[in-house]
Design a protein around this nucleic acid. Structure first.
Lengths: 278, 278
DNA sequence: CCCCTCTGTTAGATAAGTCTAACAGGATAG
DNA sequence: CTATCCTGTTAGACTTATCTAACAGAGGGG
């Protein structure tokens, strides 16, 4: 969701994002590419920048002029191209984010390499310093957490991996487990008891707290906007036995029986509570 | 980092991202805002869209025309505005991502609410379906992992929280712990032994595997591009005792003694190995 | 009934970021 | 020495996304 009225203009937003005024996503990309080429080649050629970014040469020339105007590269037509200290500093920062995100998505979460790389390209420009710090701390914690003794990630892969369909698993979170022993004891979060949509009657509202499903079902639900954190109101049973209908942001979404059993709500007593945290 | 030459044109990229051709970030924002307003108000007014997005009304009119041309809203000048099923479906998907990311950043990682919301705005357009699926699975796993018995997040907060500076902690990952008992036994990852930059001699290359530091130090390193996943070469000791200099993407980065002790490398035997995974 | 206010439109300007076409300058090959 | 090729520039066009200024319609107050 976009920013609210209080943080209005584009300029204000840029500043807020801690991105030096006037530096767009595209320009950040150029800086990063220049840094990368410079690390491997003695001279940085327009040609190579264009190839790396997938654009034509005149586009690069234009970008270099904008970067020069911002004081981030030393550029004069047909001369050697170098990053200024300011430019190199920004480029390093972006590149670090890129590497970290690629690694997080790929090695940690198990996203396929090509997608991890592509997503990192998009995400790197939008992660604030604060979020990056928290995320790196989180990764650091997981990788060194003594409680799980280094088994954490392998176990995650076992349960939620793509090719580990027949893994034996005792996690309640594991789709296999769920399939075998459907519900021995309702899941909890803190002191709240979570309930699957299938068990709730029309009128109940709540926030989606868990999606206990395998990859395919999870993706199907995500396409319709059903993901943890979303506010939902149960509006009726579906046509089939066990099916349900829920209201999400004003839209009616029908759920098949399997789906209705997979979506767990953290219910609230009141029916009308659509003040909605943004 | 931007895409490589193989996935060249903007059109190709849009398709790849699974974003229907011609639908930009800004337009996705408009769809999301319209959905949100529609869920609360019987009619959706241009005025309100403008306010929510922080732009002027004529900008909204223009955007609505583009959305109408894409078949995502039913729009005729001065008439009621409604999302088409296709538009509502996209809007739901984006909104779900937004909610999930806000929750992940805020509640899970502990990012401050305002920043979490703002980052979610930027990230929501760049997370592929695959990454989202993996990330939600990861969260699901953590929240229900029997090995850590639900203590996982509170413990994370204890060790890496902002205001829990004096928490007693036995995690090797914890900055407090590190400060007290600096290094009893080198950290490992798999069969590799990780080594702090401070202990390495010039010429050694490796990937940053851990940053064992508190928030302030971590942020300071991140500003210079030093974050897990980055390729680094140790190029010398610094001026001070315990300080060091490393080369990151062709840039010389000096490290203070504390910093050199905080950055752990997964070292490789060969010196020149800058084929660099992107 | 006329004027004022609010909502929303049109018109026209600007900036970023891309493209193609055409030109300029240097190296190389005959 | 000239023709050719490669690199990079300039020129001009287009799209997206934004702005301001000015106009249009609808409702209410006097």
């Amino acid at each position: 969701m976009p920013r609210s009225a209080s943080t209005a203009s584009t300029a204000a937003r840029a500043e807020e994002t801690r991105r030096p005024a006037g530096l767009s996503e595209a320009l950040e990309d150029y800086l990063e590419i220049i840094l990368q080429i410079a690390a491997r080649h003695p001279v940085v050629r327009v040609r190579d920048i264009a190839r790396a970014k997938g654009v034509r040469m005149p586009t690069v020339t234009a970008a270099l002029k904008r970067l020069a105007a911002l004081g981030l590269v030393d550029y004069q037509a047909r001369e050697h191209l170098v990053l200024t200290p300011a430019g190199a500093s920004i480029a390093s920062r972006i590149r670090g984010r890129h590497r970290f995100l690629t690694r997080f998505l790929g090695r940690m979460l198990g996203v396929s390499p090509a997608v991890a790389r592509r997503d990192a390209c998009g995400l790197e420009h939008h992660l604030s310093a604060e979020s990056l710090e928290r995320l790196t701390a989180f990764v650091e914690y997981i990788e060194t957490c003594p409680e799980v003794g280094g088994d954490f990630l392998p176990r995650f892969r076992d349960c939620f991996g793509r090719d580990a369909r027949q893994a034996i698993c005792t996690h309640t979170a594991c789709p296999q487990y769920a399939r075998q022993a459907s519900s021995r004891g309702a899941p909890r979060r803190g002191s709240h008891v979570l309930a699957p949509v299938a068990s709730l009657r029309p009128g109940v509202c709540g926030e989606v707290a868990r999606i206990q499903a395998d990859e395919r079902l999870r993706v199907r639900l995500q396409r319709r906007g059903l993901v943890a954190g979303v506010e939902v109101e149960v509006i009726g049973a579906g046509s089939l036995r066990g099916a349900a209908r829920v209201r999400v942001d004003g839209r009616d979404v029908p759920l098949a029986p399997r789906e209705a059993r997979a979506v767990f709500l953290d219910t609230r007593p009141a029916r009308e509570a659509r003040d909605a945290r943004t």
